[in-house]
């Protein structure tokens, strides 16, 4: 009995070590590659340099990439909150005919992968001259974020007892007052969770952004893909330097996010 238990622990630990070692290996390779020269053999590079970062800053307008990335992320969060919160409230509180259907329709954009609906969506953006514009990038990124937020916010709203709302009504509060003084303060953790997770998701959203972004509306991850795709056009270390910039941006957001939420909340929540 005891030896069996030990075996499973060893297997678990070994698998986790292999997994973590490879993930770390990938990340460290990128970082080392971006600060080294002539690393053709050996465990570590011999010559270190900052050249590739200078190269990247000549090659790309890093400021613009950052600006677009964060503008899209923050504006999307604000818009999505304004759209998702009222909807999550109704879905959490009210029973009505067709609620199940509506809920599954809201879930669809999370389940259907971007490449399946992204192409027609991108075509519509071209049709309405939104492609390669900031507004277009913001719009398409809303698609996975709004349902994601609805799903995260619903349980937080459910936790606020209906009695609290009734009590506020009996004390003379109107709808807007209840929203401002009771609902929002009590769902701040949910709003934070939804907001932060959405920012992390939007920063790393490649597929949809790639299909509509262009010129000076690229986000970092799209620029990174474009560089990696055109591998011959620039030294691979320069691509890795951009990768590090993206990696740091995403990691900082992730670390901030993990201060507030648990990793299991970052994947599709099963119910």
């Amino acid at each position: 009995m005891r030896s069996k238990l030990k075996l499973s622990s060893i297997l678990f630990a070994a698998a986790m070590v292999v997994y973590v070692a490879n993930v770390l290996g990938i990340l460290f390779t990128v970082v080392l590659n971006s600060i080294s020269k002539d690393w053709f053999r050996g465990v570590f590079p011999k010559i270190f340099t900052g050249d590739w970062y200078r190269y990247v800053s000549r090659d790309h307008d890093i400021g613009s990439l950052m600006f677009v990335t964060f503008t899209v992320a923050f504006l999307d969060v604000l818009i999505a909150l304004a759209v998702a919160f009222p909807a999550a409230y109704v879905l959490a509180r009210k029973e009505f005919r067709g609620k199940g259907l509506l809920l599954s329709l809201f879930l669809l954009p999370m389940i259907v992968p971007p490449m399946a609906y992204g192409i027609p969506l991108a075509m519509l953006c071209y049709k309405f001259h939104l492609a390669a514009r900031l507004s277009g990038v913001i719009l398409v990124n809303l698609v996975p974020i709004v349902p994601f937020m609805i799903l995260i916010l619903m349980p937080f709203i459910e936790q606020v007892g209906t009695n609290l709302e009734s009590a506020a009504v009996m004390l003379g509060a109107k709808r807007w007052t209840i929203f401002r003084k009771i609902l929002v303060p009590l769902t701040v953790p949910g709003i934070l969770t939804a907001g932060i997770l959405s920012i992390v998701k939007t920063i790393s959203m490649f597929d949809l952004t790639y299909l509509v972004a262009g010129g000076n509306t690229q986000t970092i991850v799209v620029a990174l893909y474009a560089d990696a795709y055109a591998a011959g056009a620039r030294p691979p270390q320069a691509v890795d330097a951009l990768a590090v910039i993206y990696f740091l941006t995403a990691m900082i957001c992730l670390l901030v996010a993990l201060k507030f939420v648990s990793p299991t909340q970052m994947v599709f929540k099963l119910k």
């Binding site: 007892g161 009695n163 609290l164 009734s166 009590a167 506020a168 009996m170 009771i182 009590l186």
Partner: peptide, 11 residues
Amino acid sequence: FGMVFQNYALF
């Protein structure tokens, strides 16, 4: 009217 709830409903 004033109402007191079973589970208090304090904010």
